[in-house]
Write a protein that binds this DNA or RNA. Structure first.
Lengths: 248, 248
DNA sequence: TCAAAAGTGTTAAACATACACCCATGC
DNA sequence: GCATGGGTGTATGTTTAACACTTTTGA
């Protein structure tokens, strides 16, 4: 939900982004709250410029919200039901915010633009949550990371989008070696395992997990990490070829 | 490539379909040839009506070309590079067909519509080739089934689309039990195997293939098929739940 | 010396692949 | 009978999951 004049954009086509991060043993999604009366949460979204590819557009939208340019992103599905705009949502928003709309100088043309039927391309992105400083949009009241199990009520079909994005992430995680995009430069095997457990929402056997990861031959073992805890110090690992993860 | 007035459609958004069929031990794709000078082949495509979901639109487009309504179809990717319209192709087409365009009553508005930058949603469809009577469009010179290895030169990024569609088909074939959509109601194990070999372009071990298929517990064994050949008569099989394959 | 967590090895089950054999059919 | 292709069973190797053991560290 981006109120923008129609001028330079492709009409009725939008991009919605599911931005995944990882923190406190939880998989999180970055969700802005719209600055309108009525508690509307919506996935970060935007439109496609006439001379811009869809991947570029998604990257631009993601950069706006995360400040990061080099992040993994990938389209996962198009959402184009005839009635996905969910008249309910739009009606509620407009009814409760008529005054505010006018006050912000949203003219009839802009209103017409934003309330038309939209087809939306879903992208998901993976970021190192520590590198992100979430950026409010001019239309946001706030923007926050929510654990995937505790998302606020999202508008329209945005919950569906998150579900599909998560399914795709799970499917591609090993195949495309994506996990490393969610972690800092170095990490312990336990941290990697906890990430997997957060993503798949199920426990993994510690020893078998380690074996599987090492067998991929993409982990470089560094020095040990002294935690100060009363146990053996774990090794730190780094992914051997971090640059490959960014190719989308 | 569909020359249509812009009026009822979403602008700059199209659907391109990779329609797979199976015949003579070959995986085939249904490809129309455009009725313009210069030998242009393009995947069946169309636009999305304002009150129509994208799946419905794809189904309508497929029905136009195949005459079939109940066929398996699924989106597989969006193609939206900034320069995918391939100026080359459009320039060539326009240069060679100026007179013809005018003669067909294509006015400036229609021309402007068709030459703008488009984002296209790729769908792939699976059909029983024997049930299809390929339908020419008003803009087609002809429409034919081509073996996937012997496609004519397609316009723009349509070869890319076929490649992506095939990749997706291979990925989902077992998972979603799709093979049966390409076969007639009943078939022998050998025919099923040959279909797999055509799709994956590699041989399978006969006995292991049979075991794998039977272990899926979706095949119903019918009476034997008397071929008249000098060997044991093979069983005929039918998929137990053909209706599930059509859910997209 | 002990608890806690890390690291490694060993075994069993499941699955995939390769090989061997028997069955039905028309000539 | 026998060549041909269909159907099934058995052995082998590979991957996956389950279990057991050893090592390091601070209290």
């Amino acid at each position: 939900m981006h109120a923008q004049p129609a001028i330079n954009y492709i009409h009725q086509l939008s991009i919605d982004c599911v931005i995944f991060g990882y923190q406190d043993k939880q998989l999180k999604v970055l969700v802005p709250k719209l600055d309108f009366r009525g508690d509307f949460w919506a996935l970060p979204s935007g439109y496609i410029l006439q001379d811009e590819g869809i991947d570029e557009a998604a990257r631009r939208i993601l950069e706006e919200r995360t400040g990061l340019r080099a992040i993994y992103l990938e389209q996962f599905r198009v959402f184009g039901n005839a009635h996905r705009s969910n008249r309910d949502f739009m009606d509620r928003l407009l009814r409760q915010n008529e005054a505010r709309m006018i006050e912000r100088g949203l003219d009839r043309q802009a209103l017409e633009w934003v309330t038309r039927r939209f087809v939306s391309i879903g992208y998901y992105a993976l970021v190192d949550i520590n590198k992100v400083i979430p950026q409010k949009n001019h239309i946001d009241e706030s923007i926050e990371w929510y654990p995937i199990g505790q998302l606020p009520t999202l508008i329209m079909d945005h919950h569906d989008m998150v579900t599909h994005a998560l399914d795709t992430l799970r499917l591609h995680l090993d195949e495309h070696l994506l996990a490393f995009n969610l972690l800092p430069e170095t990490f312990t095997m336990k941290e990697l395992q906890e990430l997997y457990e957060a993503i798949f929402d199920k426990p993994f056997a510690r020893n078998n997990f380690q074996k599987k990861m090492l067998d991929m031959n993409v982990l470089e073992r560094l020095e040990k990490k002294f935690t100060g805890a009363a146990n053996k110090a774990p090794y730190l690992y780094r992914w051997q070829r971090p640059e490959r993860a960014l190719i989308s």
